[in-house]
Nucleic acid binder design. Sequence first.
DNA 1: GTGTCATGCGTAT
DNA 2: TACGCCTGACACG
Length: 282
Amino acid sequence: MPEGHVLHRAARLQGRRFRGRQVTAASPQGRFADGAARLDGQTLTGIDAHGKHLFYRFDSGDVLHVHLGLFGKFRVHSLPAPEPSPNARLVMETATDHLHLAGPTVCELLDPDTEDAVRDRLGPDPILDPADGGDRLVAKLARRSISIGAALLDQSVVAGIGNVYRSELLFLAGVHPLTVAKTVDEESVRDIWARAVVALRDGERMGRIVTVLPDEMGAKTLRELKRGDRLYVYKRSGHPCRRCGTSIRSADADGRNVWWCPACQPARTELVDRASVRRAGP
DNA sequence: GTGTCATGCGTAT
DNA sequence: TACGCCTGACACG
């Protein structure tokens, strides 16, 4: 279940195996049969990620566009690989490596112009645009009356943040998630951006989302943190805040849950409609 | 075994 | 605001 770090990691690790290599391609599930037939025998020239989107470039100029959605998954193996599951949308192989894609929301061929159109709809990516993304985020949020929590999930505002990172970044920056976006002070917006750059880079490197400071959890490194100790607020309704002990709360914002610590993230300016905020449960 | 939920997003109402 | 899509993990019986 991927946020942007997963796609950048996939681009890096898959690129290492497939860049410059000729591939065979097939769609066991059948829903990408025509595309796979077109890619079969082509040489992959590069893979890159923007937000939650992945672009595979081939020597013909074809671009394979993949978006994993909520359920999509890659599996990569050195040959011999396990038998691909029958619901694999796409299987690509070189003489030595195997890629298995299941459950994506998008798996399609684009021409380069269409790729530009996809990318034009995406905001700055903390991994791609660490230097100038803060300015761009400040400009985008200055006009928005939606909550900062909702804005961080809007991929045209910032590309690659999902439901885990949004709650965690707002905790780290001390910003209440239901704050009206345009009322968040610029310093806090830049802080959110800076923390996104660090958090997504860490996630890309480790292959998992870890936002806590290890020494706060009595650990030496991020890697040794146990499952359940890696996040501050996400899915921790009713549990004590790791910093102050206050009970973590949650609310349904735009159909997705958001979590926060009411003490560490006080409401400083106006909030959007709080009707949907519910009491924290266990 | 069945049901529910989930790190997403587009389209219809 | 609701629903549909796509898959897998987990809780529950």
